[in-house]
């Protein structure tokens, strides 16, 4: 995913800081889909994602006067989103259970999704809905920090450098977490391939 133009964001941020609430509305409209994907893939729940996203933008609106532009707005808002999601997941703990409601049925009608899954041999053997559920399960078995890295890198398509800025860790740490998370996901999905009914 391409990063949005930072100069445009800076202008909107300045206008928001000078009291123009409509400028912040434009930032909300611009970043909602992107942040939705990030938060949803960390929580695997639409309702939680909606509540969290509202809280994220509310917090950003309150804190935007303190935003001095040392990083881009893109990095700043993603940092808020990731930190709030991680805090939420810690509070929620392991009580969370994936339900079938969390599986998005509409995805199976998506043309691009069908094409993507048709080229993958392990995927071809599995039911798409079941595969989606397994993917979510595999993701939820990762630690919160590893899931955040996997979400940003594989799903959101962010580069390592950007992820390191958002998480405020080194690029080496990002790569290390990614490597470990990939190994874990491989194990989970291999198990599913060998025992599809389990």
């Amino acid at each position: 995913m391409d990063q949005p133009r930072t100069d445009e964001d800076q202008e909107l941020v300045k206008r928001t800081q000078s009291g123009d609430a409509s400028a912040f509305d434009q930032l909300v409209i611009k970043y909602t889909p992107r942040l939705y994907g990030l938060v949803y893939n960390m929580t695997s729940n639409h309702e939680d994602t909606n509540d969290l996203l509202q809280d994220i933008f509310s917090k950003a609106y309150k804190a935007i006067r303190g935003f001095r532009g040392k990083s881009s707005f893109y990095t700043w808002i993603h940092s808020i989103a990731v930190n709030m999601s991680l805090n939420f997941l810690k509070k929620r703990g392991r009580r969370f259970q994936l339900s079938l409601d969390d599986v998005d049925a509409s995805i199976q009608n998506d043309k691009e999704f069908m094409e993507a899954t048709a080229t993958s041999s392990p995927v071809r053997e599995a039911d798409l809905s079941e595969l989606q559920r397994r993917l979510n399960e595999a993701m939820m078995k990762l630690s919160d920090e590893h899931r955040a890295v996997v979400t940003m890198f594989h799903i959101q398509g962010m580069p390592h450098a950007e992820i390191s800025k958002i998480l405020r860790v080194s690029e080496g740490t990002v790569r290390s977490r990614l490597f470990y998370a990939n190994r874990q996901l491989q194990n989970y999905l291999d198990e599913f391939r060998k025992n599809p009914v389990s």
Partner: peptide, 23 residues
């Protein structure tokens, strides 16, 4: 292909981009 390699994992995870909220 008997095992999920890194590319397969990445491909599968990219599918999650299609998960969208209600219309």
């Amino acid at each position: 292909m008997d095992e999920f390699n890194d590319n397969e994992i990445a491909r599968l995870l990219r599918l999650k981009r299609f998960e969208q909220p209600p219309p």
